[in-house]
Amino acid sequence: MILRFITSLFFCGCLFSAAHGQIAKEINPGEPWPDNNGNHIQAHGGGIIKLGKTYYWYGEGRAKGLDTNYRYVGCYSSKDLMNWQFRGYVLKQGDPENLGPRWVMERPKVFYNKKTKKFVMYFHLDDKPYKLARVGIAVADKPDGPFNYVKSFRPLGMESRDIGQFIDDDGTPYLIFESRPSKGFYIAALSEDYMDVEKQVSFIQAPLEGGAIVHYQGLYYAIGSALTGWRPNANKFATATTLAGPWSEFTDIAPPETNTYSSQSTMLLKVEGKRSTTVIFMADQWKPSTQWDSRYLWMPVEIGEGKLWVPRPRPWSIDVKKGTWRFKL
């Protein structure tokens, strides 16, 4: 009887684990990344904010079976950056401005405004020919939404396609956006209510997109990807002592023949712990014909003294409390 009871408990436990996903002990770059329901995470082209001890990951929802009349933003939460709970599609957006079939909503990034207590989402908004080139804004009262569409505009009056976000150590929020006619990307400070772009901080004269920035040990590091659409390329980085520049020449972050291990940058996430600080290169491995299966390449970078390098991808784990990481043994 006791053996039967133990066997029953074990069977129930296996069913529970299968239904809710196994507890991940490492990050496996380029592999399917299941959420708490066992589904591959849908947060492509995404960004992360941290509130208290919880990280929130937002990105494009491209799962199979979604209504193609809408565009979706998925939200996930985690306390360890390895195990993610699906909080739902926090934005389900129909065509907001009569843009026509196959309109575009990409690279959502969310900022939290402590003064207004609002969550403000920026995203690239476009039509099929890629002529609109604007940012859209949606707002929510909670991190897991629902977000409601407010407006779109061209930041600084410039065309804007790929966008990135950067929150400096003092909490100041910045929008990074690529402007094709200018052949470079801008760093712009947000207004006090985060609902607009207030001023240009820097223009980096380099035809790059997928902009990402981190501040580490007194230097700003900016990463960008060449303009090759869905096809991966050799991402590069530059440094500056201030966001305003001047910025150094761009150099490779990985062996150029790997095309950044078939990925494109989306964010540099700084994890500050009690012992150390880890900077994570967050990137997407796009699969245009099976977008729902696009993968994520997250790797801790080798960084410091003006150097930044993405090691060869392999499984690794992170301790967010200590701020340390290690490769899987």
Score class of each variant (00 low, 15 high):
E209L: 11
E249L: 13
A206E: 10
P246W: 12
F250R: 01
G211K: 03
S191M: 04
S202V: 03
V214Q: 06
N235Y: 13
L227M: 14
K236D: 06
I213Q: 02
T239S: 01
T251A: 13
T251L: 06
D193A: 09
A234Q: 12
L208F: 07
I187C: 06
A188D: 08
P232M: 03
E192W: 06
V214S: 13
R231K: 15
E198V: 05
E249Q: 14
T242N: 14
K236F: 08
K199I: 07
K236E: 13
I204W: 03
D252F: 15
G229V: 03
E249P: 00
S248I: 00
L219Q: 09
F185C: 11
M195P: 05
G229P: 09
H215P: 01
Y216F: 12
I213S: 09
I213V: 11
V201H: 08
A212Y: 00
T239K: 01
P246N: 04
G245Y: 10
Y220M: 00
V197N: 04
Q205P: 02
A189C: 09
G218P: 08
G210F: 04
L227R: 13
H215E: 12
Y221E: 02
K199V: 06
L243P: 11
A188N: 10
A234E: 11
E198A: 15
T228C: 07
P232H: 02
L190A: 09
V197E: 01
W230S: 14
S191G: 12
P232Y: 04
H215K: 14
G224Q: 03
R231W: 15
G218V: 11
P232E: 02
L227W: 14
E209F: 11
L243E: 12
A240Y: 05
S225G: 01
W247E: 06
L243V: 13
D193E: 04
D252Q: 12
G229H: 07
T239Q: 02
L219N: 05
L243R: 10
S225I: 01
A189K: 15
V214P: 05
F237N: 06
W230V: 09
V214W: 09
E249A: 15
A189H: 10
E209C: 12
